[in-house]
């Protein structure tokens, strides 16, 4: 290595190679992140920034006006996450399992088509579903009518009881492609010898999936779960596009992202408050950090990884 020979000389080129990335990353991502945590300890009095310690957190968790909104958003966010885990990931795994069948024809066509919703923006997805589910246009009631289930129809996005679940399912519809692709990749990487050995033992079809493939793709399912968790707890766009910043009806679709946006930026009569916004951001940071740590130390380190 030339490193050894040039030891006495300071290797400037390492600095030159690293500097741009480290500078941009530090200045635009890491520093603002910590600055946001710091700002949550301040408030504004007469247009001046005053240090108030943990008072903002006291307001957020202690005053009912704030705390009821926060717990509502957090609870909704958990429901949003649970639906993704229960619907999106199993469908993704099932689709990937079917697609990975070696003799399946048109597999690449199905794969590309099912991935299309994932590339669309939240604005398109939010409005498209809003129109389709709308009682004015009548596509959803019309289609239910065609199969004789018209009585099941309700203006789902407008009803407090259904709106959040409906939006979660729309989001599932949009993102099913991601677990599908990642699991598909994991399934392809299982060596044929293992599957052939199982076949010799008489394990084929569904039982091969449950007994051999599923245990082998568990690490990928773990990664997908944590990616889903992080993405859900910082979601905002879909709710904003479909229901606006007020996350109606009556805050029933409010999640942490929309709550933070309203608080920080203000909306209609409510004035924006960057310090309370930072406080909510800090709470979100803590939640995401706890989730990621649980995954890294609780799940990933215990999971057995197979090297082929």
């Amino acid at each position: 290595m030339s490193d050894q020979q040039s030891r006495p000389k300071f290797r400037w080129h390492i600095i030159v190679f690293l500097a741009p990335a480290v500078l941009v990353y530090t200045a635009v991502m890491i520093y603002p992140l910590f600055n946001t945590l710091r700002l949550s300890l301040f408030t504004e009095v007469d247009q001046e920034r005053v240090f108030v310690g943990l008072q903002n957190f006291q307001t957020l968790f202690g005053e009912t006006v704030w705390s009821s909104q926060f717990w509502n958003a957090l609870g909704n966010n958990f429901w949003f996450f649970i639906i993704h885990m229960l619907v999106q990931n199993p469908i993704g795994v099932a689709l990937a399992a079917i697609l990975s069948h070696p003799k399946l024809r048109f597999a690449s066509f199905y794969r590309s088509a099912i991935f299309i919703p994932t590339i669309l923006s939240f604005v398109i997805v939010g409005f498209a579903w809003k129109l389709i589910l709308s009682p004015i246009w009548g596509i959803a009631p019309g289609m239910l009518d065609a199969v004789g289930l018209k009585s099941l129809y309700a203006p789902w996005l407008g009803k407090e009881a259904y709106a959040l679940t409906t939006l979660s399912l729309v989001s599932v519809w949009q993102f099913v492609g991601i677990p599908m692709m990642l699991i598909y990749a994991a399934l392809l990487s299982i060596p044929d010898e293992i599957l052939e050995a199982a076949e010799v033992e008489g394990i084929t079809g569904l039982s091969a999936f449950w007994k051999i493939k599923l245990p082998l793709i568990l690490p990928s399912i773990g990664i997908i779960s944590i990616l889903t968790f992080v993405a859900n707890f910082n979601a905002f766009d879909l709710i904003y596009a479909a229901q606006g910043a007020l996350a109606g009806p009556d805050y029933s679709t409010d999640i942490l992202g929309t709550f933070m946006y309203r608080t920080f930026f203000g909306f209609q009569l409510q004035l924006g408050d960057p310090h309370m916004g930072s406080t909510i951001a800090s709470a979100m940071f803590a939640i995401i950090l706890v989730g990621v740590c649980l995954y890294l130390f609780g799940i990933q380190s215990r999971m057995r990884r197979y090297q082929f």
Partner: peptide
């Protein structure tokens, strides 16, 4: 240090980013 950002969403720092 550079890998930290893979898991932590940049949106958390929005307040300070806007200020900057």
């Amino acid at each position: 240090y550079l890998a930290l950002g893979i898991m932590i969403p940049i949106r958390i720092g929005t307040v300070a980013i806007l200020e900057m």
